[in-house]
Amino acid sequence: MAMSAGGHVSESPGWLAPIGWVGRTATGTLSYLGATALLTLSAGAAIVRGRDDDETTLRAATTHELSWMLWAGFPLVALVHVAMGSFLSMQAYFGSTFVDGTGAVVGVGLLRNLASMMTGLTLAGLLPGRIVPELRRLRRGPADLPFGRTAAARMLAAVAATPLLSLWGCVVGTVVGWKSSEALMGLSTDMYFLMLVRMLWYRDVVGVLVKGVLFGLVTSAFACAEGLRDLEPEADAGDEAVATMSSVVRASCLAMAAILLLNMTWFLFVYHAVPVYGPSLLQPPTP
């Protein structure tokens, strides 16, 4: 209890402070996720409406965004999957088990799980670093920024780029695994690719495409949400730079967490729970 000129002012007990913190955190999290979902719906509505005569067409904006995503993503994803391909190949070498199935371990492992997840995590670190500062600059412009259309171009580009880059990662990792197994174990090219083809199922290709679309969508949604958040007009240049960097880090971390959650959900509810999508490495389909 504190005394003031106007009378008594009550204060909450100190032991209630954690409850208030939890409440504020929960409310803020729900508000943030709700705003991101609304922005995604607004982007979807902009796609359905089509173009306006006085604005840049959605196709042109999406093509522009997609071009830089692929230009920057191809070398990064390739480097990541050089490591993934050689790692999976060396597992067979050091384990000295199932050596003849190295092609399946590398190729199917990449296509079924690793390629889409590693590509998504790579783009989760790349896209916010470009999208957030770019949208912050656009918001400082004189004209009103159409949030839905602005986010739609970036979301469409990310949705297209992530599956393409995931497949590119599969190719790079498979080739690196092939050459590694050939050099380390003397595994023939025919055996490597024969086992890969025997163990590869159509559902694996579907999985990398579906997960690629989801990973690209959540990454671009968080990046656009951070870039289009309300700015503090009285903040100086230093404060704004720090705020922008914080937004980039926050968008990247949230996107990575969402990707890991979606990947685990896909495994539990699609790969693990549904018999038709069960493990097939030791039980290849028979003609």
Rank of each mutant, 00 (worst) to 15 (best):
M1K: 03
M1G: 09
S4F: 13
G6Q: 12
S10H: 13
S10V: 11
S12V: 08
S12K: 06
G14K: 02
G20I: 07
V22C: 09
G23M: 10
G23Y: 07
A26D: 09
S31N: 14
Y32R: 13
L33S: 11
L33A: 14
A37F: 12
G44P: 07
R49Y: 10
R51T: 13
D54I: 02
A60N: 13
A61H: 04
H64N: 12
H64R: 15
L66S: 04
L66H: 05
L66T: 03
M69F: 03
W71L: 14
H81I: 07
G85Y: 02
T97S: 14
G101M: 11
A104C: 06
A104D: 08
V105Q: 11
L110T: 02
L114N: 08
S116Q: 01
M117K: 01
M118R: 00
M118T: 09
T119K: 04
T122G: 02
G125N: 04
P133N: 10
L138E: 10
P146G: 06
F147C: 00
F147E: 06
A151Y: 01
A151F: 04
A153T: 06
R154S: 11
R154F: 00
R154N: 11
M155E: 04
A157P: 06
A158P: 01
A158N: 01
A160H: 05
A161D: 10
P163H: 07
L165T: 06
L165H: 06
L167K: 00
W168Y: 14
G173T: 08
T174I: 12
L184C: 00
M185D: 14
S188W: 03
L196F: 15
Y202I: 12
D204L: 03
V213R: 01
L217R: 03
V218T: 11
V218A: 05
T219F: 02
A221T: 08
A225K: 05
E226F: 00
G227Q: 05
G227P: 03
P233C: 10
D239V: 07
E240P: 01
S246F: 02
S247R: 10
V249K: 05
A255S: 15
A258M: 11
I259R: 00
I259M: 05
L260K: 03
M264I: 07
T265G: 15
F269T: 14
V270E: 03
Y271M: 12
Y271S: 11
A273V: 07
V274R: 08
G278N: 06
P287W: 12
